[in-house]
Nucleic acid binder design. Sequence first.
DNA 1: TAGCTGACGCCCT
DNA 2: CAGGGCGCCAGCT
Length: 112
Amino acid sequence: MTKTDDHFFNKVYDVARMVPYGRVTTYGAIAKFIGSPQAARMVGWAMNKSFSQKEFVPAHRVVNRNGMLTGKHHFGTSDAMEQLLKNEGIIVIDDAIINFKKHFWDPANLID
DNA sequence: TAGCTGACGCCCT
DNA sequence: CAGGGCGCCAGCT
């Protein structure tokens, strides 16, 4: 546990990487899990910066509380995020995840 | 150096 | 039912 591991962003990346394949979580869930429930918007900002991270961060598995791909515009192409999710078996229609509740994975609920 | 802004979410009119 | 404001923390101009 180095000093950098205490950084907010680093915690966000850590949690994001915990999201299992084929599952998704929300900005708010991550924020809450790392102890800053009201910093959900920072989680989004962290995801943005995650592209420049050395280790891979599955940013496409993080959506807003409604299961909508609000951050898709930050991926290379407009449908990159959607394709990544579909590739994991998640149906996405009109920027919204179908059966979001079913695919949702709460970091606080490690027991699935 | 100080201030603005952002992939959100919740509460209050 | 809908719209607006605030908090949160760090990077960028």
